[in-house]
Design a protein around this nucleic acid. Structure first.
Lengths: 350, 350
DNA sequence: CTGAAAGCGCTAACAG
DNA sequence: CTGTTAGCGCTTTCAG
């Protein structure tokens, strides 16, 4: 381990003091151009690396934002993160990403570590079975800006960025009805999670608004948060169940792309024509939904845009005096991407 | 912003000193059980958050590892990161993830920031058009442990974790030949990138070992690093080109899953039967490759295992005295996942 | 325009 | 078992 060279090393070589060097480095107006030149020269000569730990300690500001996601290996969260980065990078912030792996206790320890390293803010989506929110309250009480996204806690008075799941579901189901579907099943996620609740509500409302009967048998609540391949299997199992009903439904609105794709695979294997006998709509617009055949109609949540918004909320809170600050909520409209799995008029290419 | 409470606040309230509290918190054996109890109680009472910035400054150790990836929204990198996390989390390390977005200058600034915050190590995959490596040399010269993965720099004497691309390609092409293919095209990535070079070599060797002629026309070098949807398009264009050849090839080994899928889509649209008229093998085992139809044969690189290895290399370097340390290189064998796009004996399900 | 000095919060000799 | 002291590297008054 090389000896790290510091600001005072530079000062010594230049027969000046640490404070002068510090000021030169931060381009302070009170330092002469000449001196700055000298300092810069020495800096590169000695390969000086500023120590932001020391600076952070002194300034009480770390210039890092903590991001907590349930998992980073989903396109959804990955592009969300990218969306944050786009915005904050030019303001000089770095991200530190923590994965809760959908576990409450990992979520807690993540928050603790982030608080320990004195992040300037936290952007988070809550884990699937988190029901107690005291750890999030703690962030607030430490005076650290917090923005929640997607799986938000609506009762908390913090910045929120989320997608209008009610609207998305309503839009999806209306589309299916327009396509002539009359018995529409719904793969619903666990109802303690807000987004799934709202999607169910949207589904119900659309059915009712079109004067169709609601059949509880067609609403299947299941845990849609697992690794991709497992959800695919879940989709297959549910599809089988639906296909064996005496009065088989003619469409499924699934709260997960992957469950929809699993169902689609089941139907293909069992010669149930999609979309003609069974139309399908998924949720999230994962890349694979564009590639499966027939391609899957789904809802795009403009995730990287969500990330942008979350970042802006953070920046806004940072520049606002606490006494004037009011949390902002952004609700983004998802967009229905219509593909072949629901387009009855279309010929399905094989 | 609440006043942050410190170790000395606790000390004061307990009529003791900061050092005692510090020791109690680190569970030092020299502190009495009773005192520790008291300290712990106060800690939770006052909602004390340890300041790891201060601790890091003092100890010269941050307990964070910097990870630099070209992009995090690819399954490949996402699961790699997850693989690192699995291993280092229990050793108390956090990750800070930087995306170079395949840009040389972002890569440089990422390295600088990481060095500035005094990370304990850096794990990186190099950006697609990075040709100058001085920024990586700098990491070494600062005495910071470095491990390179996937797109490594073989000439650097650091820890390396990569996949045996030569083997993967050889295996893929041999498989195609076994399936009866005789004119096998290759979508090659840009040849200044090592992994693509090795895949081309593996392709060539397999062809030669089976006494087939090498036809340069069938080897198409193209930039395979873009966003997913673009590569799909590239695949379509290349497929068209191949399909118009007087002597049409009967198989493609693509260095990218997405290009292979694009080609597959083109062939389906143009009634060229896959795999019977045209067999396909991709690379990376992206989820979508299992879902497209016919499902795509591809090479799985066991990415999260790569992440595990990278993490272990880092930990090994950390515990080894610099004078005894020798960089380790791990070359992992990819696994051919045989699916329908190359299995001629199989019936293709529609 | 520059320097001296104090201190961010914690840890680790060293001393008792 | 506990306290004293110094200092990690930087920033920032305050003083000139």
């Amino acid at each position: 381990m090389k000896k790290k060279i510091t600001i005072s090393d530079i000062a010594r070589e230049l027969n000046t003091t640490a404070s002068t060097v510090s000021r030169a480095l931060s381009d302070d107006s009170r330092i002469s151009k000449a001196k700055k030149k000298l300092v810069w020269k020495k800096v590169s000569e000695l390969q000086y690396q500023p120590n932001s730990i020391a600076s952070a300690l002194r300034k009480g500001k770390s210039n890092v934002i903590g991001v907590i996601v349930p998992t980073s290996d989903r396109q959804f969260f990955a592009s969300f993160i990218r969306g944050i980065e786009e915005i904050v990078r030019e303001e000089g912030y770095r991200l530190i990403i923590c994965q809760s792996d959908e576990q409450y206790d990992k979520e807690c320890t993540s928050i603790d570590s982030l608080l320990n390293i004195r992040v300037d803010g936290i952007i988070a989506s809550v884990a699937k079975n988190t029901v107690d929110f005291s750890h999030f309250k703690k962030i607030e009480s430490q005076g650290v800006p917090l923005v929640l996204f997607d799986r938000v806690i609506e009762t908390m008075n913090v910045n929120l960025v989320y997608s209008d799941d009610y609207y998305g579901a309503y839009r999806a189901v209306s589309h299916l009805i327009e396509q002539g579907c009359r018995r529409i099943a719904h793969f619903a996620g666990k109802q303690h999670i807000h987004i799934y609740q709202n999607r169910l509500k949207g589904y119900l409302q659309a059915i009712r608004d079109h004067h169709l009967p609601v059949d509880d048998e067609l609403i299947i609540e299941t845990d849609l948060i697992h690794d991709t391949y497992s959800i695919l299997e879940i989709g297959k199992v549910l599809a089988k169940k639906l296909s064996e009903m005496p009065e088989r439904p003619d469409a499924i609105f699934s709260s997960s792309d992957f469950a929809a794709m699993g169902a689609l695979q089941f139907f293909k294997e069992n010669n149930i024509a999609v979309p003609d006998e069974m139309a399908l709509v998924g949720y999230s617009n994962d890349f694979s939904s564009s590639v499966i055949e027939p391609s899957l109609t789904t809802l795009d949540q403009h995730t990287s845009h969500m990330g942008n918004e979350a970042a802006r909320h953070f920046l806004y809170q940072i520049i606002t005096k606490p006494e004037y600050f009011k949390p902002r909520k952004t609700l983004l409209k998802p967009e229905l991407v219509i593909r072949n799995s629901s387009l009855r008029r279309n010929v399905i290419p094989t």
